[in-house]
Simulated assay, not measured.
Amino acid sequence: MTTKAQTEINNTAIEGITIDCVIFSFNKESLEVLLVQHAEGESVGKWGLLGGWMKTEESADDAAQRILHELTSMDNIYLEQLKAFTNPKRVIERRVVTIGYYTLINREDYNITASLTVREAKWHKIKDIPDLIFDHNEILDFSLMHLQNRVRQAPIGFNLLPEKFTLLQLMHLYEEILGIELDKSNFRRKILHMKLLVALDEKQKDVSHRAAKLYKFDSEIYEKLTQKGFNFEF
């Protein structure tokens, strides 16, 4: 039988272990990351990644999902664990180990709001990141490097796009993530050859230029092809 004292202990944070989440999004032609301005503690008023303490009854994955939900109301979001950041000097005057995670979202699907521990939440272009608290710039750089490797091996980048998109939007996404300029014809030929996209009988609306054809990513086709030995390689 659980006592009141045990319950109180189970609801407390684990001293010295935190979770930090890198939340990527794509706005038109810019890769962005969500930063928060802290409302309390030693980092009050400063910008950093979304994070918090892990509770005694939580796994690292559960803690990451909870922290993300508290700010964004997102449930069961794809989160990938990066690694533990263990530099003993990462936080002054005490030892704090943090476990980094990252996720990719379409920002139009969620309403990001401040919480009790966050004064402001704001999207920043990946090319215009300010100096962040602790080692959060290092965590962000590591996350971006990991993302660049992952998008070459799996079609996770589609999480950043709306359900319906143009090939040009998809190309700009890869250019932003990888930091390179792609040849339009070669990109179109290569991505269509993979047969992971469904061409829709629709075109862009309310655009000043010639409306482009819309496509959608077919996850079921990807799963079937993967079972047959298909390797996504960009």
Score class of each variant (00 low, 15 high):
Ile112Phe: 14
Ser30Met: 10
Asn27Lys: 13
Phe85Ile: 10
Asp75Phe: 09
Val96Lys: 04
Ala60Lys: 11
Arg66Cys: 08
Glu93Lys: 15
Glu29Phe: 05
Ser59Thr: 14
Tyr101Cys: 06
Ile23Met: 02
Val97Leu: 06
Arg119Trp: 03
Leu79Lys: 04
Ser73Pro: 00
Asp61Trp: 02
Ile67Ala: 12
Thr72Glu: 02
Leu35Thr: 03
Asp20Tyr: 01
Thr56Phe: 08
Glu57Tyr: 09
Ser43Trp: 09
Phe24Met: 11
Tyr110Cys: 12
Asn76Gln: 14
Ile92Arg: 11
Ile23Pro: 00
Leu82Ser: 13
Gln81Cys: 12
Thr98Ile: 10
Phe26Glu: 04
Phe26Asp: 03
Leu49Arg: 05
Val33Ala: 11
Leu104His: 02
Gly41Met: 06
Thr103Ala: 07
Arg107Pro: 06
Glu32Gln: 15
Lys55Tyr: 14
Glu70Asp: 13
Thr98Tyr: 04
Leu35Phe: 01
Lys46Asn: 13
Arg90Glu: 06
Leu31Val: 11
Leu68Cys: 08
His38Tyr: 14
Lys28Ile: 13
Gly51Asp: 03
Ala60Arg: 05
Ala39Met: 01
Met54Ala: 10
Val44His: 05
Met74Thr: 07
Phe24Leu: 10
Lys55Thr: 11
Lys46Asp: 12
Ala39Cys: 07
Ser115Lys: 00
Ser30Arg: 14
Val91Glu: 08
Asp109His: 14
Leu35Tyr: 01
Asp61Gly: 01
Asn106Arg: 05
His69Tyr: 15
Gly41Lys: 03
Ile17Ser: 05
Leu116Met: 11
Leu82Asp: 07
Ser43Arg: 12
Lys83Trp: 02
Arg119Ile: 03
Val36Gly: 03
Val91Gly: 06
Gly45Val: 08
Pro88Met: 12
Asp109Ile: 09
Asn76Pro: 01
Glu29Asp: 14
Gly52Trp: 00
Gly41Val: 10
Cys21Val: 14
Lys55Met: 14
Asp20His: 07
Phe24Arg: 06
Leu82Lys: 02
Val36Gln: 01
Thr18Trp: 02
Asn27Ile: 08
Leu68Met: 13
Glu40Arg: 12
Asn111Thr: 07
Gly48Trp: 01
Arg66Tyr: 05
Trp47His: 05
Thr86Asp: 10
Glu93Gln: 13
Leu104Cys: 14
Ser43Val: 13
Glu57Leu: 06
Arg119Val: 01
Asn27Tyr: 10
Lys89Pro: 00
Gly52His: 00
Glu70Trp: 01
Glu70Thr: 06
Val44Trp: 00
Lys55Cys: 11
Asn76Asp: 15
Glu29Tyr: 08
Phe26Tyr: 07
Ser59Gly: 02
Tyr102Arg: 11
Glu42Trp: 05
Phe26Asn: 04
Asn27Pro: 00
Leu50Trp: 02
Ile67Val: 15
Gly48Thr: 09
Glu93Asp: 15
Lys89Gln: 14
Thr86Lys: 10
His69Asp: 13
Asn106Thr: 11
Leu34Ser: 04
Thr103Asp: 01
Leu116Gly: 15
Gly48Glu: 05
Lys89Ile: 09
Thr98Trp: 03
